[in-house]
Simulated scan of single mutants.
Amino acid sequence: MADHDLSGFERTTFTHGGTTRKVLRRGTGPAVVVMAEIPGITPKVLEFAERVAAIGCTAVLPVLFGTPGRDPNPAAHGWLRSGAYTASTVAKVCVSREFTLLATGRSSPVVGWLRALAAAEHQRCGGPGVGAVGMCLTGGFALAMAVDDRLLAPVLSQPSLPLAVTARRRARIDVSAEELAVVKDRCANGGLRVLGMRFRGDRLVPGDRFAALRRELGDAFTAVELDDADANPDGLISPHSVLTEHLIDEPGQPTRDALDQVLDLFRDRLLSDRGAAAGVRSGLGVPAAEAGSPPGR
């Protein structure tokens, strides 16, 4: 692939709590917040967003790190420049106070900003609620965002925080105990469903993490766990990115089936009568202005 020029995507900004970030948007209908993996919003992340828009939703992509549209593949910029770009992005994330990489029992501070974005997008786009997809570093953010009743369809794609450097961290996800309790209650009493996906051999997303989510959320957590052999062999790293870099976009492929499950969740929860009923049960439709400033150019 090559760099994406962002054609077809509206470019805006969103401000909350004194922090302004760029936001890309495509489509119409209920909002789905798409949070990219490192090194940022790559052409393949944008392809995923285009699929979200194609089913009748608005794909909303906050720029949390990296250069939107830049292709990290060395074929696009050469090994030296591509490696330097990825390393620079990782370094900036590591020193940022917005991302909690190692600590257990708490969410990254950026999640508050993301909740406000989701609330404002629900107000803007309408519908029964909002969906969210987190990938790798941002994977667990979708779970922490689900303390807000507006979030009806959280997807955790290869959630990699906290970094699995100890046994305790391997069995945890980056959400506080208080937030997890709210999500558990929504699962038990509000019909919330949480979708997670990983490759079985992925050391960044150990099986212990998904086992813990099963224990905490019960049948409300659907785990899609793929064999490493199911990954696109052209990926530059070992099997990791289910919806983007390691997707084999062909009918019958396990990664394509995983992608279809994500889109089906959005259809069910955001576009169907069932989703509308879930929104009513959750008390959605409350003005979201207090959660953050409306996006603007």
Results as ranks from 00 to 15, higher is better:
56 G>K: 03
77 H>K: 09
73 N>E: 13
101 L>E: 09
106 R>Y: 11
85 Y>L: 06
122 H>G: 15
87 A>P: 05
117 L>W: 00
65 F>S: 06
134 G>D: 01
45 V>A: 09
128 P>D: 07
49 A>R: 02
68 P>F: 07
105 G>K: 01
83 G>H: 09
112 G>Q: 07
96 S>D: 09
111 V>P: 01
48 F>L: 11
116 A>I: 05
56 G>E: 06
74 P>F: 01
88 S>M: 08
121 E>G: 01
52 V>A: 04
67 T>R: 14
53 A>H: 03
89 T>V: 15
113 W>K: 03
97 R>D: 13
126 G>L: 10
48 F>M: 09
96 S>E: 09
76 A>E: 09
134 G>I: 01
43 P>N: 00
112 G>P: 04
49 A>D: 05
66 G>W: 02
103 A>Q: 12
101 L>C: 12
92 K>A: 15
81 R>W: 15
91 A>M: 13
47 E>A: 12
54 A>G: 13
78 G>C: 10
82 S>N: 06
78 G>A: 10
55 I>F: 01
103 A>N: 13
95 V>P: 00
89 T>I: 15
123 Q>C: 06
109 P>K: 08
133 V>D: 00
43 P>E: 00
80 L>E: 14
99 F>V: 11
46 L>F: 08
113 W>N: 00
126 G>Y: 09
70 R>L: 12
106 R>S: 14
114 L>G: 04
68 P>W: 00
48 F>N: 02
58 T>P: 05
105 G>T: 11
79 W>S: 12
69 G>C: 10
54 A>I: 11
58 T>V: 09
83 G>L: 07
45 V>Y: 02
86 T>Y: 03
82 S>A: 15
127 G>M: 08
51 R>E: 12
101 L>P: 01
131 G>R: 00
59 A>M: 04
72 P>C: 08
82 S>Q: 04
59 A>L: 03
88 S>P: 02
86 T>W: 02
64 L>E: 01
123 Q>G: 13
45 V>I: 15
68 P>M: 06
49 A>P: 01
98 E>L: 12
107 S>F: 05
124 R>G: 02
71 D>P: 03
123 Q>T: 14
45 V>F: 07
